[in-house]
Amino acid sequence: MKTNIIKAENLKKSYGTLEVLKGVDFTVERGEIFALLGSNGAGKTTVVKILSTLLRGDGGSAAICGFDVKRQRRQVKGCISLTGQFAAVDEVLTGRENLILIAKLRHLKNPGKTADNLLSHFELTEAGSRRVRTYSGGMRRRLDISMSLIGDPQILFLDEPTTGLDPEARISVWKEIKQLSENGKTVFLTTQYLEEAEQLADHIAILHEGKIIANGTLAELKKHLPSAKVEYVEKQPTLEEIFLAIIGKKEEN
């Protein structure tokens, strides 16, 4: 039986006269990928900041792992990790040194082994000894996510994790996110990409004008549409499929 690990009730937040959140409600089950979908400025990052104790809401309540985000901030921080929109990595250090630094801050017994295991898991071993400023966008994002896993958090917040990435790098990050869920992590994902939510999420909530206007599985959300009209058309490959096919052929040659 699955249990709720995140619960938000009537969350409200304003900046001056601008009302960003007007009463947001949702729950997230343990071990699932939950996508908060919305356009730029919809308030997705504000929700993440409130849930991760970086920002106080003006009204409502939220609980993480059973702990109140206002009154039990230390306990909340102990069971979460946050990867923001921009990779929080030190470009002067190598990838391995970044991981070791975080492992030491987390007071782990063997920081070097932790770093090597994560580099291997995220296919960054060969790049581990290079300075991060030489990394591609996709490599930086994978390193950023690997740093967030140090300390074995129960919940991983990913705020628009693939923004600015090319198609190949985006699919690589998707693969890692799916793997996290398969390994029992709860992933709270914000995105403005419809395909990203469709590919990854067990549950999707749509945030619009400060409120959740739809919430459910992809199959449940499809019920909001009228019955499909059956037509027989030739399926054309998408640009993304063409791009990846060309890249694959190039690598083979």
Rank of each mutant, 00 (worst) to 15 (best):
G138L: 04
R133L: 13
E126D: 14
T162K: 06
R74G: 01
D68P: 00
D159G: 05
I6W: 00
G78C: 10
K185Q: 01
V48S: 05
R71K: 14
T217W: 09
Q199T: 14
L36K: 02
I242C: 11
G128L: 00
S52R: 05
A201S: 10
A201E: 08
Q192M: 07
L221Y: 06
K178S: 08
E251I: 15
L118G: 00
K70C: 13
L55R: 05
S120Q: 15
K49N: 12
P111W: 01
K7G: 09
Q75R: 10
K235S: 14
E209K: 13
K77E: 05
C65W: 02
Q75M: 10
D166A: 03
L37H: 05
L189N: 00
E32N: 05
I246T: 15
A63C: 12
E176H: 14
L51R: 08
L93C: 06
F34A: 06
A88Y: 10
L51T: 04
L37Y: 05
G248F: 12
S136M: 09
E9M: 02
D152H: 11
G248M: 14
K235F: 10
R170D: 00
L221V: 08
I247L: 15
H121S: 11
L118W: 00
F67C: 02
T190V: 02
I206W: 01
L200P: 06
T114R: 04
Q75A: 13
T125H: 07
A87I: 05
L55A: 02
L239I: 13
R56K: 15
G43W: 07
A42S: 13
